[in-house]
């Protein structure tokens, strides 16, 4: 008998008597303003929320905040850093200073943004860049993770991720350091609709 059969048979003969799978409501009442809450949550985890009206708002902000960036890439055709076709080899992104990508929606309770592979150009871009910026519609913010998964059910993906702030570590004496392995900063541009 192979390991698979051995493990499965062992489980079948040992597992607990059937217990029900609970059903639950996902509409926990959170009446506060989702947009406001999202911005506060994002700031609290080391991210930055920037409201913009036009695409120029993004280029102006980048020029002002990141004047020394040499390589910026983006999957957004309206931006000057747009890359129509991403290379297959992720190692070619090693020297990327900033990636500007779209996100599907934000989550007010924790400042996270849901991004799937189709918005990344390559799966490695959100992690290998020194800095990350995501673009969201101001109206695309849900209250809790429960609502988030209701929405995720309607978006098919091969790889999807919640990104909540810059990469971070507190492994050295619990001192918070932003920029562990991934981006050192995360900006979310919120487009007024």
């Amino acid at each position: 008998m192979g390991s698979r059969e051995r493990v499965l048979q062992n489980i079948l003969s040992q597992q607990a008597p059937a217990k029900f799978l609970p059903t639950f409501e996902t509409n926990y009442s959170h009446d506060s303003d989702n947009f406001q809450k999202f911005c506060e949550a994002l700031e609290s985890i080391g991210g930055k929320a920037v409201e913009i009206v036009t695409w120029k708002g993004i280029t102006d902000h980048v020029a002002e905040q990141y004047p020394s960036m040499r390589r910026i890439i983006s999957t957004i055709s309206e931006l000057p850093w747009y890359v129509p076709q991403f290379e297959h080899d992720p190692h070619s992104f090693e020297n990327v200073d900033l990636s500007v990508l779209k996100g599907h929606f934000g989550v007010a309770e924790n400042g996270a943004v849901w991004v799937t592979e189709s918005l990344m150009g390559h799966r490695s871009t959100p992690f290998i860049s020194q800095h990350l910026a995501l673009v969201l519609n101001k109206g695309d913010i849900v209250s809790t993770l429960h609502e988030a998964y209701d929405r995720i059910d309607r978006i098919s993906y091969d790889f999807g991720i919640f990104i909540a702030g810059p990469s971070k570590t507190a492994d050295i004496e619990q001192s918070l350091v932003l920029g562990a392995h991934g981006p050192k900063s995360m900006t979310v541009f919120l487009v007024a609709t």
Partner: peptide, 19 residues
């Protein structure tokens, strides 16, 4: 775990990347 509202990255691996 740490009092954060969520970890920075929560990655959902559904299918392998091309190749």
């Amino acid at each position: 775990a740490t009092g954060q509202p969520i970890t920075t990255y929560s990655s959902h691996f559904r299918k392998p990347r091309a190749g």
